[in-house]
Simulated assay, not measured.
Amino acid sequence: MSKTQIKQLIASRTHTDGLTETGIRGVRLFRATRSIPCVPAVYEPCVVAIVSGAKEAVFDGNRYVYDDSQYLCCPMSMPVKAGTPSASADHPLYGVFISLDPQLMTVLALDMETAGGALPTGKGGPPAQGIQLASWDDNFTDALVRLLALGASQTDTAVLGAARLREVYYAILKGEAGVFARQAFGAGNAIARSIADVSAKLDAPISIDDMATRAGMSRAAFHRKFKQVTTMAPIQFVKSMRLNNAAMKIASGVTVNEAALDVGYASPSQFSREFKRMYGQSPRQWGAAQHLPAGMAMGSEG
């Protein structure tokens, strides 16, 4: 089983740029045949695997370029910029976007921790923060081929899809990103819970003191731990999540005022100021400049 098979499966099933559903919840194929610069997006818990071409993500100033030698693992919701700067009609990008179900990943992580066997310990050095690139290994490749091969039969997809997706999750947890992912999905990860809560309630008032209280920490301890996990202070993270979500909404055709309200800004003028400070354009200028194929940023909508 090989990445060549995966590429052939994707190429045969994607007929337009953007995302293509597979019939398996949370698993989508994607194609890009033109260069798209990095634009604001929000990655929900996911793995992005490329089998042809290269993709780029920028998180808190760090640039991640990955191709068929590494896949991207993002176990918690993160505000990023993402694009396909090297894609073209002659050299299309093909890949797979896999949403990570936090509940199932947590169950698998706990099962692995209690099974009694030795778990991968990862490479030396500081722990990964926010997102991580992981080398493809045979377990991940084989599990992904088995998952995508189900697309040839609607019955096979319906009956076996969940089990094959579980195999892919297990391969991720056993692989190079396994320690990183298990830390995010393991028991007692208060920061991961805080991030999930923020992501689900961007339109509501968000208090750092309340986040710390729910995490069972003092404000100072919560701030320190949050920055260790995400590289960002909590206030900076919340603002980036809100503005990236708003940028995606505006690019999809939502009005500036609607986008501002949807992500918790009561003051349109404050929203415009902070948006321009982060992206160098007013929200209206930003919206006028965006002409992306549906789903190409692969953020919270995909």
Rank of each mutant, 00 (worst) to 15 (best):
residue 254 V to T: 06
residue 242 R to L: 02
residue 85 P to A: 10
residue 58 V to M: 04
residue 145 V to H: 01
residue 101 D to E: 09
residue 27 V to H: 00
residue 177 A to L: 01
residue 19 L to K: 07
residue 151 G to P: 00
residue 188 G to L: 03
residue 36 I to F: 07
residue 253 G to W: 00
residue 228 Q to F: 04
residue 278 M to R: 14
residue 272 S to T: 14
residue 144 L to I: 01
residue 157 T to I: 03
residue 190 A to N: 09
residue 77 S to E: 13
residue 264 G to E: 03
residue 289 A to C: 08
residue 213 T to I: 07
residue 284 R to S: 15
residue 93 L to K: 00
residue 99 S to M: 05
residue 300 S to Y: 12
residue 205 P to E: 04
residue 125 G to N: 01
residue 84 T to W: 14
residue 224 R to W: 01
residue 32 A to P: 02
residue 110 L to W: 05
residue 217 M to W: 00
residue 125 G to W: 00
residue 160 L to S: 08
residue 93 L to F: 10
residue 145 V to R: 00
residue 206 I to C: 09
residue 289 A to N: 14
residue 154 Q to T: 00
residue 170 Y to D: 03
residue 28 R to K: 02
residue 95 G to T: 01
residue 245 N to D: 10
residue 191 I to T: 10
residue 198 V to I: 07
residue 122 G to F: 10
residue 130 G to I: 14
residue 176 E to G: 05
residue 241 M to N: 07
residue 50 I to F: 03
residue 172 I to E: 00
residue 299 G to S: 02
residue 107 V to E: 12
residue 61 G to S: 05
residue 274 E to A: 06
residue 262 D to G: 12
residue 124 G to V: 12
residue 88 S to P: 11
residue 283 P to Q: 08
residue 48 V to K: 11
residue 111 D to W: 08
residue 298 M to D: 08
residue 125 G to H: 05
residue 91 H to C: 12
residue 49 A to Q: 13
residue 37 P to D: 15
residue 117 G to C: 08
residue 18 G to F: 15
residue 88 S to F: 05
residue 143 A to R: 06
residue 75 P to W: 13
residue 157 T to P: 05
residue 9 L to I: 13
residue 246 A to C: 03
residue 212 A to K: 06
residue 185 F to A: 01
residue 59 F to L: 07
residue 277 R to T: 11
residue 27 V to F: 03
residue 126 P to K: 13
residue 280 G to R: 06
residue 78 M to V: 12
residue 157 T to W: 14
residue 259 A to Q: 04
residue 265 Y to V: 04
residue 5 Q to L: 06
residue 262 D to P: 10
residue 141 T to K: 03
residue 47 V to T: 09
residue 131 I to G: 14
residue 273 R to L: 06
residue 164 R to L: 06
residue 209 D to G: 06
residue 126 P to F: 06
residue 72 L to G: 07
residue 228 Q to T: 12
residue 244 N to K: 02
residue 73 C to W: 14
residue 135 S to W: 14
residue 193 R to I: 07
residue 28 R to C: 02
residue 207 S to F: 01
residue 226 F to W: 02
residue 78 M to H: 12
residue 131 I to K: 15
residue 139 N to S: 11
residue 92 P to V: 00
residue 44 E to T: 12
residue 266 A to S: 15
residue 161 G to H: 09
residue 245 N to K: 09
residue 23 G to Q: 01
residue 166 R to N: 02
residue 245 N to Y: 08
residue 202 L to R: 01
residue 159 V to R: 13
residue 132 Q to G: 13
residue 278 M to Y: 14
residue 106 T to L: 09
residue 198 V to A: 00
residue 94 Y to E: 10
residue 140 F to W: 09
residue 163 A to S: 14
residue 135 S to P: 15
residue 290 Q to L: 11
residue 231 T to F: 00
residue 72 L to H: 11
residue 37 P to W: 14
residue 234 P to V: 02
residue 26 G to L: 02
residue 244 N to I: 01
residue 238 V to F: 02
residue 271 F to I: 03
residue 287 G to E: 14
residue 289 A to V: 13
residue 240 S to D: 10
residue 67 D to R: 05
residue 125 G to K: 11
residue 19 L to Y: 13
residue 19 L to M: 14
residue 86 S to Q: 08
residue 221 A to Y: 00
